[in-house]
Structures are given as structure tokens and as C-alpha cells.
Design a protein around this nucleic acid. Sequence first.
DNA 1: AATGAATGAGGATTCATTCAT
DNA 2: GATGAATGAATCCTCATTCAT
Lengths: 195, 195, 195, 195
Amino acid sequence: MPKLGMEPIRRLALVKATIDELGARGSRDVTVARIAARAGMSSALAHHYFGGKDDMFLAAMRHTLRIYGAEVRGALVMADGPRARVEAVIRAGFGPANFRPEVVAAGLNFWLLARTNPGAARLLAVYQGRLRSNLLHGLRPLAGVQADAIAERIGALIDGIYLRQGLRHGPLETRPDGGQASAHVLAALQRELPR
Amino acid sequence: MPKLGMEPIRRLALVKATIDELGARGSRDVTVARIAARAGMSSALAHHYFGGKDDMFLAAMRHTLRIYGAEVRGALVMADGPRARVEAVIRAGFGPANFRPEVVAAGLNFWLLARTNPGAARLLAVYQGRLRSNLLHGLRPLAGVQADAIAERIGALIDGIYLRQGLRHGPLETRPDGGQASAHVLAALQRELPR
Amino acid sequence: MPKLGMEPIRRLALVKATIDELGARGSRDVTVARIAARAGMSSALAHHYFGGKDDMFLAAMRHTLRIYGAEVRGALVMADGPRARVEAVIRAGFGPANFRPEVVAAGLNFWLLARTNPGAARLLAVYQGRLRSNLLHGLRPLAGVQADAIAERIGALIDGIYLRQGLRHGPLETRPDGGQASAHVLAALQRELPR
Amino acid sequence: MPKLGMEPIRRLALVKATIDELGARGSRDVTVARIAARAGMSSALAHHYFGGKDDMFLAAMRHTLRIYGAEVRGALVMADGPRARVEAVIRAGFGPANFRPEVVAAGLNFWLLARTNPGAARLLAVYQGRLRSNLLHGLRPLAGVQADAIAERIGALIDGIYLRQGLRHGPLETRPDGGQASAHVLAALQRELPR
DNA sequence: AATGAATGAGGATTCATTCAT
DNA sequence: GATGAATGAATCCTCATTCAT
């Protein structure tokens, strides 16, 4: 019994299913049929709502980044002063919404996808640009000309911790420890900033 | 014109072709046929020398790590004192043999593969253990109880820089700048160590 | 022009095509593609409805045995007295539905398949057990302790006649003569029973 | 170090390996490479001695029938009188040389092969003709006009017992009981002959 | 809106067979 | 005589995608 206004519901279900599926299996074994099944619909319907598999991946990537962006923006409004802003950006990335194992695993797949898919490359560039500019905005008043180099290192450190987290022990068992992760980055930040 | 003793030659050619192919396309589009073609043989012969696709991937991963290990060992013998040893480990990772774009791209694929393939997981664990212990050996005398945390951060930073490098601009155009990469890590090291 | 409720139709068509194909060619040359073509569909669809080739073979074997079982049961209800029951079992096996050349040829292939495929072995065991018990039920009142040995011989004779029929002149030309076949077994039965 | 006169040795080894392989696996999984390996040589050499796979099968079939024929001839010279001749033919078929599990299993495969391979069909026809004429020669003086029908039944019974033996319990465990097998056929013969 | 039906294209893998050495 | 090298031709199977209902 088809209902009206199902479109956004279906699309969201598919996007979430895509992320979960990427987390559960290697991207090589993620099929449209399995995503659709996980989302509780036929694969034909998945194609109806998205043009094809790549579109679903892109939508899932966009979804992930949108949540990340919202998290960061939310943290920034609370932050007072440049240092607090930098720390807010760091902490937001490791918050419970972004640092879930499926999300991290899916994210890694999106990154690889960006190597061949122009749309994904564009999205990735946006993320990287935003992260960089967010860090820079806070760092510039604190570190002057050093800000660029520090932003690069802090950004790379964040990505590296993500990467390591995404690959921890193959299947997704233990919840990643976002607190410890951000503690590491904050410690690095502490050492980077002039006293 | 079949000759004798082709096995090692063919295997090496296939391993290199696998790495190149992973560098050139996303792992999703790497087929045995294309690897074999790039290595100048039929896909049947590739299956003859390796059990199957996964074996080829594992062999390529092993090859990559073997070269990395040799590079590190070579750098370590020249190093004098703990600080020099840590720096040697860092520099070796960004040497021209390891920091080539195809190698980095292939490496990322191997990392993702480790999420689902036990053999790859084992190899990755070996690499990570070795990196960690190498760093720790040098850091312990320099930083005492802090050594563990520092090793974790330096290791993650290295991985993060690799990751960013591997995804730079999709296709492989510009040679990655290993010098700048290791300069970043060395700078972070400098800030981590007590004065 | 896809319609609904095709599944049972397609499955039956595939099962019949499997039997026919086994009859027409040696099992070595029976491919999924050819079965599907004979059934008027793509091989992909055949894989969609059955898990794979082995499943198709098992389904065909099950189909054959189901028809055989129904034939026997039908004959048994009409039979009056033990002797009539034994004769009914014999005649049913050589009835026109079971003694068609393709069916016999397919049956032989199933028997060989049972040597390596556990599922086929199970089905074959069921058939053999049923045949034996059917014969025994009728023979016991007629032959007492001899019943077992007689059942074994009659059963083997039936199988032997099937075998010879299945291999008559390679390709399937002449309709096998079920009447003559069962006449032979009935004659043997007559000689086995005490006067 | 190639030796002279290897040809008959190699050929025999391949023939035996073919039979054993047919006994050990289903005919579907018997490959030239495996036969050659079992015979201790390369598959290329197998092709050198036999034109191809089919030739190897035919040679193995011929070998099997030759042994069977020799066994029968040997038994016949000792037989005195028609009844003894018939019994000798029966017993020879179930002698230890012919009733080995691998041989029986291979035989079944040859029979199926005869449905599609003209050479195999010819060989099978020879065997069947010989069996029939051997039985007839002994039966004619004993049963007159009934001889034909009896020969048909006894022949089919022999084949049926072979068939059942060949499929006993999938893999080849227990040695088949040739004594019991021939006892069954002899019992049937006893009942067929007029008193 | 939703789905079962259907397929073309492709991919890993196997294997009989050939050839130069 | 013997073999490693090599491949073309299948074969099974999967999957994204389309279409009629």
C-alpha cells in the first residue's frame, strides 16, 4: 500500500542502509540488492529513488558529511575564543555521531571512492577544505605564520586516527573511544601551540 | 617462446601489475584480466601462478611491506642514537620507494582489504606492530612513560599523511613530496619530545 | 512481458529442461546455459530461481522421484492382496511416465551424481529404501524368510533393466518397451515365489 | 632421465590412474592433470601418449574389458558342461579382479560415456554381446527356447547388482562382497532353469 | 508507489591442449 | 622422452539495471 510522501523516508533508509552495509562488509561485497534488503525494500525501488548505485554511494557520503558539518557548526557556536574553536572542531569530529564504527568504515570507502569518482572527489574536497579552514580560523590568531603547517599536521593526525580506528580488528566490535582519540589530538595541539 | 625459470619473473610482473592497477583504478575495477594484461600475459597464466585473485592481492601487499621493511632496516643501521633511530624510521617511510603514488594508493586498498580478508589483516598487523615497536625503541629513552602516547600519535600522523597523499587529486599526477611529508612528522616529533 | 506468479512455471520448465538435456547429452556437456536455453530463458534467470547448477540437478532428481512415488502409490491402492501389490510396484516402475528414455537417462546420471553429492545420495537412498520396503511388504506373506533375498534380486533386476534401457543405442530413438521390461521382472518374480 | 621402452609402462600407469581417479571422484571432477599426477607424470606427457582425454578414457575402458574377458575365458576352460559354463561366466564377473570398487565405479562411468561417445558405445556393445553369447551358449542346451529370455534376465540382474554395488555408500569403503553377489545370481539361475 | 521478472555484461576460475626447450 | 609455459574457450555465477504490471 504505497503512501504519499514516502520519498524522503525511503531515501533516508537507503542512505543509512548503505552506510551500515559498508560498515558490515567490504565495499567489494556491497550490492544494491543487499542495501535495498537492509532498507526493507526491493532493489528496483532503490533504483527508482536513486539513479543507480553510484548515486546511492554519493548520497550516503553527502549524508555523512552533512551530519559532520552540523556537528561542527553546533560545537562552534558554543566556543569562545580561538583556542576553544579549534578544540571544538577537533572534538566534534570524534563525537559519538561521527565516530561510530560503521560511519568510520563507510568514510574510508568514500575516500577511496574519491580516487575514481569525480562526485565523491568533490565532496571529499569540500570536507577537507572545511576542516582546514575551520582549523586555520582558530589557529591563525594563536600561531601566526605557523598556522598553515599546524593545520596540516593536526588535520593529518585526525585523518590518521580515523584511519586506524576504521581498521581496528576487522569487524566492528568495540565501540571506538572518541574521548581518547580527541585527547590525542588535543595533546598534539597543545604541543604545537607556542607557550 | 616459452623459457624455463619463468615463475619468479611472472610472479613479480604480476605483483607489480597489481600494484599499478590498484593505483590506476579503484580496487572495484581491478580485474584479474586487466592485471594479467598489464603484466603481459593471459589471465589463465595469472591463475596458474597464483591461486586466485586474493592470493595476488596478498602477494602484492606482502611485496609492498617487504620493501618497506627493507628500507627501514637499511635506515636503522646507519642511525646513531635513539633520536636518530626514530628519525630514520620516519624518513624511511617517506623515501622514494615507498611514497610513490601507486604504492600509496595500493596500500590504502590493502588497508581496506584487511577489514575483510584475514590474511591481509595479519599482514597489516605485522606492519603496524613493527612501526610501533620501531618508534617505541627509539622513544623510550627519550620520553620515558610518554613514549607510548607519542608513538601512537606519530604513528597516526604518518598514516594520516599517507592517507592524504594517497587521495591527492584522484589520478596520479604529481609525485608526492616525501621530503615535505617527513618534515611534517619530524616537526611533530620535535614538539613531542621534552626539551 | 513479465507476469506475476512465474516462479513455479519457470522452476518446472527448468526441471523438465534439465531432464531432457541430461537425456540428450552426456551429463558432462549439460551446462546451465543450455538448460536455460532449452527452458526458454536466460541462464541468469535460472540462477535466480535455483541457487546454482547442483540445485537444479537435485530439483530434477526430486521431481523424477516424486513422479515415480506417485505412480507407485496410485498403483498400490488398486492392488488386492500381497502378490498384486508386488506386481503393482513392478509395473509402476515401468509405466510410460517413468520409463521414458530421457527420464531413464537422467536417472542414471542422478545415480552417478549420488556418488559425490550428498543431497543426491540422500534422495537415492530414499528411493532405494522405498522400493525395498514396498517389495518386502508384499513378499513377506508370500515367501517368508526368503523375502529379503528375493526383494534384493528383484530390486537389482529392476535396476539392471533400467540401466540397459538407459544405454540402449546412445541417442534416444525407440520408445522403450515398458511392457516387455515388466514382463521380464514378473517372470523372474514368478520363478522366485514358491509354488 | 628418459628411458627406452617407457611407452607401455606409461600408458598402463595412465590407464590405471584413470580408473582409480574415476573411482575416487565423480567423472565430472576427473581432469587430465589429476590423472597424470596420480600416474606420476605431467599432463603434457599424458597427451603425448594418448591423443587426448577421450582416448585415455577409451583405453581405460578397453583395459577393464580386456581383463574381464580374460577372466571369463580362464573360467570357461575349467568348466565342464553347459551349466558349469554358465556358472563360470557369472562367477568370473564377480571375481576379485572385476568387482573392486574403483573398477565398478569406473565401469558405470564408461557406460554413461557410451551414450555419447561412439568408441565407448562400440566397446560396450562388444561387452554386452559377449556376455549375452556366453550365457546363451550355456543356456541353450539347458533351457531351449527359453534361453534368450533367461539370458536377458540374468544379464540384467548382473548389471543391476553391479550398479547397486557401484553406488554403495558413495565413497569406496567396504570391499564389495563378490561371493554374495554371485550367490544371488546363481540363485536366480537355479530358479530359471527347468527342474 | 512498488515489485517480481528478466537479462546483458562481465568476472573469476578451470581445463584440455599445444609448443619450445 | 619429458616438462614447464602458455592460452583460448568455456562454465558457473553475480549484479546493476530495466520493464511491465
